[in-house]
Amino acid sequence: MSDLTRQPLSPSPHDEGPPNHVRSVSTSDIEEQAAQLRGWQQHYSQLSSGAFRGEFQELELHGLQLFFETTSSNLFQTGAIQKDTIAIGLPLAYKGEGYFCGEAMSDTSLHFFSGKDGFEYLSPESLIMSGIVIQTRDLLEQLTQREAEVVSALIERPQLVKVDAQRIASLRQFISSISQMAAHAPQALENEQLLHSLGQSIFNSFIDTIVTRIDRDAPRLNNAQRLKLIKDVRNIVVGSPDAPPGIQDICNALNVSRRTLQNCFQVGMSCTPLDFIKIVRLNGVRSMLRHSTTVSEAAAHWGFWHFGNFARDYRALFGKLPSEEHSQLQKLR
């Protein structure tokens, strides 16, 4: 199984020294905008009137290319991506209607295509599009055999893939927070350990959103089996605090399917496996705050790379900010 530690996709042959993991560009020309996605062959034609304004932001992580593209006008986009790669587009915001390879966009659809075929996209106005590009092999190796078969069928042609509304809303929130971090704190992305953790989190979030659409039967566990599985998952998380495991990592380690794991936590804990992993880590931070010099030290130990999201999640669970908790716990020492 790949652990996403390969070199970034489509590196520039002229790069020297440490890689620049974040790249941001503003444009006023559609051809300049079309050329921003490295490794892609694209052509844009403007359809709506008015001056064009575009922005582009790219993050190169371990084996994963994450991009954000903002375009002000209706465009007709044609192009293709590199062979043996898969692209998954996630619209974050737009006005009006858009059509991807003849299919109407919706708020619950991902744009799915591979290097096998080209694509056509009639994009709406004021579009903010995000997406990932990854090696086909890296994606398929993270899936069960059944899931890999379904995803392989999906990439036979470019198409929109309808997914669970709640899942895609959570994915949008998560991906948007990464764009904000890259814009306001790009220096954080020079940390190699953080880059690996971030890349894995992005990868897992997209995979989990995709595979929830796959309807598979799974054995129902009894109470004792559920409790044991929940305990085993907790032990895995606690055993590697600074590198939170992905869902497929847990499934492989415990020899269970994603659906079995999902059912176990929905019935036994009324939450998703990802929610449980986050709760275990947040509780780990809280325990560590009593002895840590700073909140950042405890957060980093438990693999929280985005301090704003961490503080929000901490307050949602415990009712106070981690800085407030730290101050109170220090007084009790």
Rank of each mutant, 00 (worst) to 15 (best):
Q46L: 11
V151T: 12
Q145F: 15
S257I: 11
C264N: 04
P91K: 04
Q142M: 08
S323P: 00
C264V: 08
G131R: 00
G199I: 03
G308P: 05
I236A: 02
L317R: 14
F318L: 08
E149L: 15
S10D: 12
D3G: 08
F310P: 07
R286H: 13
P219L: 09
P8K: 02
A51Y: 03
L47A: 09
D29A: 07
G63Y: 01
G246A: 03
Y44V: 07
R6H: 06
L61Q: 00
H43L: 12
K331M: 05
L140T: 15
R53L: 10
I202D: 02
H306W: 06
F52Q: 02
L321Q: 11
I214H: 08
L195G: 00
L154N: 11
I202S: 01
V25G: 00
L37Q: 15
N222G: 11
Q42D: 08
R53N: 10
Q248N: 12
V267Y: 10
A299N: 06
E156I: 10
D29M: 04
N222D: 15
L139C: 02
E97R: 15
L261R: 08
L332H: 14
Q77F: 01
M288S: 13
S49P: 00
R53T: 10
I155V: 15
I175F: 01
L66R: 04
S205V: 00
P241W: 04
D217C: 08
D164S: 08
I277E: 06
Q65H: 07
E31A: 14
S109T: 13
G17S: 06
R216K: 14
S323Q: 14
R234T: 09
T293W: 08
G319R: 10
V22T: 12
L198D: 01
V161G: 01
T294V: 04
S197F: 02
L122S: 10
N263R: 12
Q248H: 13
R258A: 10
L75W: 01
T293P: 01
F52E: 03
D3C: 06
T71K: 07
H291R: 15
L321W: 08
Q266Y: 07
L282W: 06
V256E: 05
F112Q: 04
A183C: 07
V150Q: 14
V280C: 10
T136W: 02
R234D: 05
S109I: 03
K331L: 13
L254N: 10
G268N: 04
V238F: 08
E60C: 05
W305F: 13
E324D: 15
Q262V: 03
N309E: 09
L37P: 09
G50W: 07
A224N: 13
P273A: 02
G63A: 03
Q33G: 01
I250T: 13
F68W: 10
P91L: 01
C264E: 04
T71F: 02
I202N: 02
V133I: 12
R216Y: 11
S176C: 04
A93P: 00
A299L: 09
L160K: 12
G284L: 06
I86H: 09
L139T: 02
P8I: 03
T260F: 04
I250M: 13
Q142F: 05
D232R: 11
A300W: 00
R226D: 11
W302C: 06
Y44R: 10
E97C: 02
D275C: 05
F304E: 03
E147H: 14
S26P: 00
F113M: 13
R216S: 15
D208E: 13
I128E: 10
M105Q: 14
